[in-house]
Amino acid sequence: MRLSIYRFNPESDLKPHMQDYELAPEADDKKLLDALMRLKTIDDSLSFRRSCREGVCGSDAMNINGRNGLACLTPLAGLKEPVVLRPLPGFPVIRDLIVDMTQFFAHYHSIKPYLINDTAPPERERLQSPAEREKLNGLYECILCACCSSFCPSFWWNPDKFIGPAGLLQAYRFISDSRDTATAERLAYLDDVYRLFRCRTIMNCTEVCPKGLSPSHAIERIRQALVRESS
């Protein structure tokens, strides 16, 4: 199979370039990550992140033939050749397919991704009814791979101010949690031209989420909650 991969070595390159590879995948190479691992045995200078190799850690997000996805979840069969691999769009490139996620995680931390509850803690734990727990489905599964935020045009133009789909999905995850008492503060923080309202419902986020989640739906619900709160 043929691949064309974005290469950038900060120690020797002024500019990134594309490098072509020929690779003969073996029978048990099923996913794109398997091919990349095999390629690494041929060219050990090729750099990319990977860890769990089964779509749980979110390390190997990259731009595959023009769309963001996880290499470990992308089947080799059916990929158009040459397979063009580039780093996540809009993120600073550290080396080859490895991007700097500092800003992405700063946005994640800004929405206080933890339960806030100022009532006295009960003896053992804060219980939820099955219905309350149900509300977290489709939100808690996010693995923070950044496929969504890095495919979002609004995030490209204001990466420093717009929280982005991943951070907003997480924000809604805590807004929806029956055990969290900071909903009003969370909504007030998000009621901002940049943080939430740069979203133009393009839905690129939902298109590429490798876990099948819908950040655009979470954003829709946050906006509805804001309207309800102020009326």
Partner: peptide, 8 residues
């Protein structure tokens, strides 16, 4: 900042 390239 500015030293790192971006793919966009």
């Amino acid at each position: 900042a500015g030293a790192a390239p971006k793919f966009l």
